[in-house]
Design a protein around this nucleic acid. Structure first.
Lengths: 244, 244
DNA sequence: ATTGCCGGTTTGTCCGACAATCATACGATC
DNA sequence: GATCGTATGATTGTCGGACAAACCGGCAAT
């Protein structure tokens, strides 16, 4: 028996409401910062109940398309924050059994060209931001958690320095997934901190001198070091990445 | 006046419920496919109203963590689908004023190493899938929309052939953002189809012969061609990408 | 084996309600 | 005049209850 009729899907009202408002936002008919009508008003306009509107708002909220500004009750249109979107990607990858090796491989591919690009496009302010992150890392002698955070921040600053949001957002999930295992690695491998600090220093120099190829090389070495660190720490690269 | 007290945030119940269930899923205490209790039962367990539970479910639903299997009423735990997650990233990038150049630059960085990796890791089935996509593209003589779809599918197959979900998911938003402008380009530049078909053929050959460097080169050329196509079509690379 | 029917369960949607919070305006106090 | 307290209205978060539609399992009828 062949399937003659496609299963007709009747979407529930709350999804239609969410889709309608979502399209308005994506098409920029509703602009960033603009405040949404109250729930009662939305319910009146769509001809549905307030509960239905609320369910739709929860969906838009979780997509980051609307937000409540602190100290305000009305929802306002917002652009999804990078960290939020990246968290969604991280969670998806987590559940898809991504391994430490997978993440490391992606970093290998992504980061060196990213540093290379940053060496061309970075502004003075970018450089300052990157240098600050590197200094913060070197200053952290104690807690691994802080060190890991500074280390990730270093990457983030380089990502921003490319002035390409696509690249910045592409690396964010990797950093989120890397943090837990990186913390373990730094704790177990004494010399890791020094090696990371050195690579960061060289990278700052390369970025300052605007030498793309040098930046590429040092970033590649930086990432390769991570793998060595994992091996020295006895972390199996085939293990699944753990939740942040 | 200094800010002495951080603004204490009291989360509404619906978000706590969503967070609690979400953590269970991410920690794999709730496994994929497992069915959630009914809304009434959840309301009873959390000690809240059913409406509150429903708002929480809408959030989890939009994150792709729960799903209703077709023909079933109860929600079941699910892993976020790649396309869904990528759509979130695409929307975020759209609203962050990403330009065609930004996307193209990211492709330049990402795709050649991806093809290179695929040349090493592809299975026979992967190759067949890639070849099928290439054939589909060559067969499409008429509608640009179909051609664009085949073209994107070609990339997706290569992404899958790396057997690294991180890479596959990283490129998906780029493909989604590329599609609209790519359609315009193919329509306006007559020779584009032939050039794309050639690059795809060479790539298939390189992947079949397991020659990573050749695959890298042809993919780089393939992507460079896109830029040429855009210029020939008179598409300003500084324009924002448009919604799919 | 297919069809039709029945009762129990679950969802989608609605209605109405209330406390807590926020915005604003209006006085009161210093 | 500036600050504070308060009254008022709007809005959200949460609740309880309600009902139609759809699904599920079983059972009877054809």
């Amino acid at each position: 028996m062949s399937v003659e009729f496609a299963p007709l899907l009747l979407e529930p009202a709350y999804r239609k409401v969410a889709a309608t408002i979502g399209e308005r936002i994506l098409s920029r008919a509703l602009r960033e910062g603009e405040r949404l009508p109250s729930e009662i008003e939305l319910a009146r306009q769509f001809g549905v109940n307030r509960s239905t509107v609320r369910e739709a708002l929860r969906e838009l909220e979780s997509r980051g398309l609307v937000q409540r500004r602190p100290g305000s009750k009305l929802m306002s249109v917002s652009r999804p924050h990078h960290a939020t979107v990246a968290a969604g990607v991280s969670h998806a990858l987590l559940l898809h059994d991504v391994t430490v090796r997978n993440v490391w491989e992606a970093l290998t591919i992504l980061e060196p060209p990213l540093a290379e690009t940053a060496a061309r496009t970075r502004s003075a302010a970018d450089l300052e931001c990157i240098r600050a992150a590197a200094d913060a890392f070197s200053a952290q002698r104690a807690r691994a958690a802080q060190a890991v955070h500074s280390c990730a921040e270093f990457f983030r600053c380089i990502g921003r320095a490319t002035h390409n949001p696509v690249l910045g957002l592409a690396q964010e999930p990797l950093l989120q997934l890397l943090e837990p295992s990186l913390g373990v690695m730094i704790d177990k491998v004494p010399q890791a901190r020094a090696r990371i600090a050195t690579a960061q220093r060289r990278l700052v120099e390369a970025l300052e001198a605007r030498e793309p190829e040098l930046a590429h090389q040092w970033m590649a070495r930086h990432i390769r070091d991570f793998r060595r660190g994992y091996e020295l720490a006895g972390i199996d690269l085939g293990l699944r990445v753990t939740s942040a």
